[in-house]
Design a protein around this nucleic acid. Structure first.
Length: 328
DNA sequence: CAGCACGA
DNA sequence: TCGTGCTGG
């Protein structure tokens, strides 16, 4: 879920065309999770192949990525490595929420309550190792690079943008701001039916709030993150007020007579000095057309016509260049 | 979520 | 040509 900063964060609306020619680092777990939650039937059943293996993520990755590429945008997917120990509590909690949701989903299905069923199905979505490995396999076949983070994917994606190897991170979460990503794109989609694309710029946000990145991290720790609980009753607005008044989290905690469940300095380090790597290279290849057909259509039962159309979109850049060359 | 067919 | 609603796997 990430830190709840929505209420105080300034975002500007952009168009997908504004990203033409740019490189976007996609927060892979975040995006795959959304595909798994939303690409479902009305009763919440995910897309599955003949053998009952989930394919929602493959559908999402193929169609969205090809549509993005068609817009002249280059993408790199960034996956998680090991989770920091302090995240264990969050992970355990999420698991129990999923298990509970799955029970209620099955229950609603038995009762024939379709809408209720879907609601719980969405909450039961889980990224299994198979989902990760099949996602990576598809990206390889598509010629789209991916980076495996040593730890948090969001930290690595933010690092890639900070280095200038990508223009922005695409994620729904605000955590990348804490990790120092200069730009975040929210709602990255091509046929934006529900939400418009949002651009979050770290510098602009800090200027507007009149705080430093360190203070933003301190605010997040008061509100609560994936790595700590935060102080009960403190949301984004009071966190901002308190940090601006007192300057840093130590003064705020002293003033309130409260403590965090971990040393603030340990928690700060997770965001301000995260474990990342420079050991990656980004190269885009042309899609392995027959490989994709074999994998998606023969192995997982996708429609060959639809898949071929998607592959065509990925080759559009070349065909435009080619036709221009032919013309001149 | 995105593709696609269909109707305004 | 665009919006809407069903289907995909």
């Amino acid at each position: 879920m990430g830190v709840k900063l929505k209420d105080i964060i300034y975002a500007s609306k952009i168009k997908i065309e504004d990203l033409n020619g740019r490189i976007i680092a996609i927060d892979a777990p975040n995006t795959i999770y959304q595909f798994l939650s939303s690409i479902r039937q009305k009763d919440g059943t995910p897309l599955m192949d003949r053998k009952g293996r989930i394919t929602s993520h493959l559908s999402g990755i193929l169609y969205r990525t090809s549509a993005i590429i068609e817009k002249g945008i280059k993408v790199v997917y960034v996956f998680d490595g090991k989770s920091p120990h302090l995240k264990m509590e969050t992970i355990t909690k999420r698991k129990s929420v999923r298990v509970e949701a799955e029970k209620k989903w099955k229950e609603a299905l038995r009762e024939g309550e379709i809408e209720e069923a879907r609601k719980y199905a969405v909450r039961s979505a889980r990224i299994s190792p198979e989902i990760i490995s099949t996602s990576k396999k598809l990206l390889d076949l598509m010629g789209v690079p991916f980076v495996e983070a040593p730890a948090e994917g969001e930290a690595q994606a933010s690092h890639i943008v900070q280095k200038g190897d990508a223009w922005a991170v695409a994620s729904q979460d605000y955590d990348c701001l804490l990790f120092g990503a200069p730009r975040i794109i929210r709602n990255l989609a091509v046929t934006g039916r529900a939400h418009e694309l949002e651009l979050l710029e770290l510098e602009t946000i800090l200027k507007k709030l009149k705080i430093t990145r360190e203070q933003l991290v301190d605010m997040a720790l008061l509100i609560g993150t994936d790595f700590n609980k935060g102080i009960k009753g403190i949301g984004p607005k009071s966190a901002l007020k308190l940090i601006k008044e007192k300057g840093n989290i130590y003064n705020v905690l002293e003033d309130l007579g409260e403590e965090l469940d971990e040393e603030p300095e340990t928690l700060r380090e997770i965001f301000l000095n995260p474990e990342v790597t420079d050991d990656y290279k980004l190269s885009w290849k042309s899609p392995d057309k027959e490989g994709i057909i074999e994998f998606l259509c023969h192995e997982h039962g996708f429609s060959e016509e639809r898949v071929r159309n998607a592959i065509k979109k990925m080759q559009v850049e070349k065909s435009i260049q080619k036709s221009l060359t032919d013309w001149f």
